[in-house]
Design a protein around this nucleic acid. Structure first.
Lengths: 351, 351
DNA sequence: AGGTACCGTGGGAGCGCTCCCACCGGTGAT
DNA sequence: ATCACCGGTGGGAGCGCTCCCACGGTACCT
C-alpha cells in the first residue's frame, strides 16, 4: 500500500534505504554504522548518525533476524508453575537480575511456559525452529529431557540450579553447601547442641548440598552426625509439619532446627508451638530463602539468603558469552562454566 | 552451507518451498494451508499436511513477520520493580493466567522492564517500531505517560488496575469496592463495632475503591462513617505500623482493623501485639491480597483474595480481541471494555 | 454453443535487512 | 613510474514468507 518515495507513508517507519538516501551514502554503509562496524570513516559515521536521529530510524528486527539468521532474543523457560521457582522471592528477584543485565543489550526476553504437554511440544518446536539465540532454564527436574534437547540442537543454555554435580550445561547456583554450613555453625555458636535438619526435596541437588553443609559443619565442630536428626521434607509447609512431628517424637530434647525452606520452617514452627516449645528459648529455628514469610513470621525467622538477583545477572552474562562464542562458529572448546554465588545468613529473632 | 536438495542441510530447517516441492504443489498453496485458509481442497490440504509432518516444517517467524508486517508477539510491560506488582502473589499468578491463556495461541510473550529512564526509552523505541502486536500494562502510576503513548501509536493495550474510573484503555480489575465491602461486612457480622481502615496508597485507584467499599458497608449497615477511623497507608509494613499507632492512640477501644494489604496488616499486627491487644480476641484483623504472608501469619490472617490468575486470562482475552479487531483495520468503533472480576473473602483465625 | 462466474491454484513481487563482492583512490614497496 | 595492498564504500543477491494477480478448469446460465 502506498509504497512511494521517502517518508511519511501511512504509519511508515523509515527504512535503512531511506536513512542512506538522507545521509547521501549507500545501504551497506548505514548497516555498518548501525552495527558498529569499525570500517567506517568518522565523517560518514557522523552523517549517518545524524540521519538516523532526524528520521527516528529504528531497525526492523524481523528483517534483521531473517537476513542474519539470528533472533536477538533469549527465552526464559519456566517449567510447571507448581515448582519452587514461582515462589517468592525466587521468581521476581531472578527476573529483576535478568532484566537489569539485559537492559544493556539489544536482546529481548521471551517468557515460555513449559508446564503442560502441549506447551512442552510447542517449546520443542520453538527451539527446533531456532527462534531464540539462547535459553535460560530454571528449576529443572533431574529427569527432564529439556537440557538434552538443547544440547542436541546446540542452543546455548544456562541452567540455574544444576541438576547434579556433573551438570553438563553451564550453570549458576548459590552456595547451598556454604548456606547449610553457615546455618548450622550459627546454631552451634549459639550454644545449640541437638540440631535437627528438615531437608528439602532430595531430588533437588541444592537440597542435597544443604544436607552436606549441615553434616560437615557438625563434623568439623567435632560433633558426630546423627542421621536420625535428618528428616526428609519437600519444601512445603505440610512437609515441615510432618517432619517436625517425627523429629519431636524422636528427640523431645532437640534445641534447634534447620529447615530446608522458610515455608518448611513455618510448618515446623506450628508443630513446635503446639508442643509447647518456645522459639527461640527452647528451640532455635533457621529457614532458607529469606522470603517474605521469614520477615513476617513471629518471631522473625533467621534464614539463609540466596543472591538471586545476582544469580539472574550471572545467568545472562554466561548466556551472552556462550552466544557470542558460538557466533563465529569456529572456536568451540569452550569449557563448561559453573558459577557459584555466596549465600548469606540473615539472623533474626528465631535463633 | 551445503544448500542441497530437500532435507538434512546442516541445522537446516525446511522452508515453505521445500514443503511445496514435497507435496507437489505451489508455495502459495502451502502458505494457505499453514494459515488455515478455507480456499484449499481437502485432498491438497491433506497432501500438504503430510509433507509438513514428514519434513517437520515449522514456519520461520521472522520471515512471516517481515512479509506480513505483524509480529505475533505481545509485551508485558513491567514498571519499576519496587511496585506492588512484584509482590507475591501478584506477579507469578498473573503470569500463570497470561501463560495459560496464551498457550492456545501462536502468540509469544515478551517481558519488558520499564524501570530506568534508559529502559523506558528503549521501550518507546520498541513500541514506535511496532515490534509487538499488543501490550499488557500492569500497575501503572496515575501520571505515567505510557498509556497515552500507546494510544497515540494505536497499539492495542490492556491495563490491569485502571488508573481511574475514567480509564481510557481497556482494563481488567478485581472488584476492590466489593472486596472492601465484604471485609467490613464480615467484621460487622462478627459483632465488631469500631472498625478502622488502613488504606493503601490512595493514588492507586483500587485502594480508593476499597475505601469506598469500607464506607458504604458501614453506611448501609446503619453506622456512621468516622473519617478519623480511616488512616492512610502505603501498602508497606512500615506504613501499617505507623498508621496502627496513630489509630490506637486515637481509638484505644477499636475492635477491628481492615488493612489495605497483607503486609500492612503484618505491620499493624506488630503494633497491636506490642500494645497488648490479642488477635482476634481484642481486635479482629483483615488484610488484602491473600498472599503467603496471610497464610503463615500468626494467627493466620483473614484476607481478601483477588482472582489474579483469572485477571491474567482476561487481559489476554481482551487484548487478543483488540488485536483481532484491528487487523481488518476497518471497523473501528470498538467500545472500551472494562472487566471487573469478583474478589473473595478468605476467612481465617484473625477475625 | 458461447458467455460468465467462481473455485483452486501457481508463482512474481517485495517486506527490510545482512552479507559479500567489486570497486575506488591513496599509500608504501619495488 | 609501476604494482600490490588496504581502508572505505556501493549495491546485488537473497533470507523465507505473505499478498495478490493471473490462469485453467468446471459448472451454470442464457
Amino acid at each position: 500500500m502506498a509504497s512511494h518515495g521517502a517518508r511519511g507513508r501511512s504509519g511508515g517507519r523509515p527504512t535503512l534505504e531511506e536513512v542512506a538516501a538522507r545521509a547521501g551514502v549507500g545501504r551497506g554503509t548505514v548497516s555498518r554504522v548501525i552495527n558498529g562496524s569499525p570500517r567506517v570513516s568518522d565523517a560518514t559515521r557522523a552523517a549517518v548518525e545524524a540521519a538516523v536521529a532526524e528520521l527516528g530510524y529504528v531497525p526492523n528486527t524481523a528483517a534483521r533476524a531473517l537476513a542474519a539468521n539470528r533472533t536477538d532474543a533469549i527465552a526464559l523457560v519456566v517449567p510447571e508453575p507448581e515448582t519452587r521457582f514461582f515462589a517468592e522471592p525466587y521468581f521476581s528477584d531472578m527476573l529483576r537480575g535478568v532484566g537489569a543485565e539485559l537492559s544493556d543489550t539489544e536482546m529481548q526476553l521471551l517468557l515460555i511456559f513449559a508446564g503442560s504437554d502441549r506447551e512442552r511440544q510447542r517449546l520443542a518446536q520453538y527451539l527446533a525452529a531456532h527462534r531464540v539465540d539462547g535459553v535460560l532454564l530454571v528449576s529443572v527436574h533431574a529427569d527432564d529431557p529439556l537440557p538434552d534437547l538443547l544440547a542436541q540442537l546446540e542452543i546455548p543454555a544456562v541452567i540455574s540450579g544444576p541438576r547434579s554435580a556433573a551438570e553438563t550445561l553451564t550453570s549458576v547456583d548459590s552456595d547451598n553447601y556454604g548456606g547449610g554450613r553457615a546455618a548450622v555453625e550459627h546454631l552451634l555458636a549459639g550454644g545449640r547442641r541437638t540440631i535437627a535438619h528438615i531437608t528439602g526435596r532430595l531430588d533437588v541437588y541444592g537440597a542435597q548440598r544443604r544436607v552436606d553443609g549441615y553434616r560437615d559443619a557438625l563434623r568439623d565442630a567435632g560433633h558426630g552426625v546423627d542421621e536420625l536428626l535428618i528428616e526428609p521434607g519437600d519444601f512445603t509447609e505440610e512437609g515441615g509439619r510432618r517432619a517436625m512431628s517425627v523429629l519431636l517424637d524422636r528427640y523431645p530434647a532437640l534445641d534447634a532446627v534447620f529447615a530446608g525452606s522458610d515455608v518448611t520452617a513455618a510448618g515446623a514452627r506450628q508443630v513446635l508451638r503446639e508442643a509447647g516449645r518456645r522459639i527461640p528459648d527452647d528451640v532455635a529455628l533457621v529457614g532458607y530463602d529469606d522470603s517474605a514469610i521469614a520477615r513476617h513470621m513471629d518471631p522473625p525467622l533467621t534464614s539463609v539468603r540466596q543472591p538471586i538477583v545476582e544469580m539472574g545477572r550471572a545467568m545472562i552474562d554466561l548466556l551472552l558469552a556462550e552466544i557470542a562464542d558460538r557466533r563465529p562458529a569456529v572456536s568451540r572448546g569452550l569449557e563448561r562454566r559453573h558459577a557459584v554465588l555466596p549465600a548469606e545468613l540473615v539472623v533474626r529473632a528465631s535463633s
